[in-house]
Amino acid sequence: MTQSRRYWIPSVAFCAVLVTGGLAAWAETVYVQAKTAQLRSGKTSLDAVVGNVKYGDALDVIGRDGSWVEVKTAAGAKGWIFSNKTSSTKPSGTNDTLARLGHSMRGGDASATTASAGARGLDKASEGYADRTGVSARDRDAVDRMTAYQIADQEVEEFLREGGLGEYAK
């Protein structure tokens, strides 16, 4: 009896460690699948924003309710995120390691902008292409402006809110 108790206590402790560790290993992780996203104190778009996360961030899932997921960030911040802004698989990203390596090995500078172009402008390759194909100054300017065209994230958010889209759905 004494001997069995001697083994019983460590066995329970060992199992507890296994279960705890196992649960931790099985904890669900989601990734931010939007350019940016907000964490809110509750599961509606009317709840206060308690944090911001960005594309590719890993989040531990605490719970789910309808279109919202309660999560914890790597830094420990907790909040609710709109489920359509998350993915169960890690996004590969635009310039993954293989692509960067390939570009490096090909050794090019195709995207360097022309010196005359200033902060925006056609890159050298496109400028050369335009020269060789006789693209007019008007059309070059159109693509130049298109390339430089920007809309602030906040404007997009306001557009969604006005339209009752995304997390602002009524």
């Binding site: 635009t94 310039n95 293989l98 692509a99 390939g102 570009h103 490096s104 090909r106 995207s111 496109s126």
Partner: peptide, 16 residues
Amino acid sequence: GSLFPIGYEEESSIGQ
């Protein structure tokens, strides 16, 4: 290098 995927910088040149 050409066997690797095209990265965004090169993609951008093609797109433009």
